[in-house]
Amino acid sequence: MKRSLLGCLALLTLIGCGAPSTSDQGRKSPVPAESAVPAPAPAVAAARNAAVQPSIYELSTRLRDDTGSVGSLDRFRGHPVLITMFYGSCATACPLLTTELKRIERQLPQKVRDDLRVLMVSFDEDRDTPEVLARLKRERGMDGARWTLASASDDEARALSGVLGIKYRKLDNGEFFHSSVIVLLDPQGRPLVRLSGVGEDLDGVVAALTTPSS
């Protein structure tokens, strides 16, 4: 009971306060104009937000994965999923993203880890072909069974990034500027925790994964 309470608090803190300081703040609530009612207390607002976070699986994003097969975004429905976006030829932040994901995994008990899925979606459909993605998977030592690398079309990548709150720009030379974000989805695809940047405190994610849901 206490652990779940702690987990909930950690959850709410991370969702509510959005401490990592970037433009892609986790929670921004719209405020009505003029006759604004005072905003609810932070914990309440966060709880409300957490409760009604819609599932991102409402997006019918088509993904082409590292095995070459094409499927929908909700391929891992029923499992908690760590989802992020990247591109294969990225030399700085993206390897770090991988490291972060592995770091999270290492802190999880075996059983939880077995249930977890990791989905990394590339916005570079042209270059990140299934072959390239498969190679990346091998080179970076990703668990073949649970990790999936995939790419999406420009339009669908934009939509997915919109839902995850990831900003990116494709340069003419094929590189991308992008924000580094990892989102934990619950088995129904609802975002639970959002990590912005790398080197952030992982306690919230770990807690969300290891505490039984209330």
Binding site: G16, C17, G18, A19, S29, P32, A33
Partner: peptide
């Protein structure tokens, strides 16, 4: 953004 709110400590 207009119509939205942020929080930090």
């Amino acid at each position: 953004a207009p119509g939205h709110a942020s929080k930090f400590s």
